[in-house]
Amino acid sequence: MSRRRLLPLVGLVALVLTAGCAGFFGSQPVSDEQLDEDPPSPYVWDNEVNAHITITENARFQAVYRLDRTRMELFRRDGFGGRNAIPVSAVRYRYPNGTVITGTELVARGGAINRSRERVSVRLPADAPDDGGGRLAFTSSSTPKRFSLPTFVNGSYAVVLPPNRRVEMFPFGKVSPRGYEVTPADDRRVIRWDSVESDSVSVQFYLQRDLLIFGGAAVGLGIVGAVGALYYKRRIDALREQREELGLDVDTDDEFRDDPPPGMG
Rank of each mutant, 00 (worst) to 15 (best):
F24Y: 14
E168R: 15
V196T: 07
A229T: 06
L221G: 09
P171L: 03
N84E: 14
M72I: 13
S195H: 12
S41V: 06
A85W: 06
I101N: 08
D187L: 01
G133F: 02
P177K: 11
A51H: 07
E33Q: 15
I223T: 14
R123S: 12
S116Y: 13
T104M: 09
M169D: 15
V122H: 04
A217Y: 13
R189G: 01
L212M: 09
V120Y: 03
K145I: 01
R123P: 01
G111Y: 01
G263P: 06
V203Q: 03
L230H: 12
D251T: 06
G11M: 05
A112F: 06
F256R: 02
G23K: 07
Q208A: 12
G132Y: 00
I191S: 00
D194W: 01
V175N: 03
R117Y: 14
D46V: 10
D32Q: 13
G247Y: 10
N58F: 05
I213C: 00
R209T: 15
P8V: 05
D249Q: 05
Q62Y: 01
L67K: 06
R76F: 07
L149V: 09
M264A: 15
N154V: 07
R119S: 10
D68F: 10
Y157K: 08
S121C: 02
D130S: 14
S27W: 12
F170Q: 11
T139K: 01
P42S: 12
E168Q: 15
L161W: 11
I101E: 08
P261A: 08
V203E: 11
G155V: 08
V219E: 10
V196L: 09
G81E: 13
V122E: 04
L6Q: 11
A218P: 00
Y65D: 04
E33C: 01
L211S: 02
F170D: 05
L248C: 09
Y93D: 00
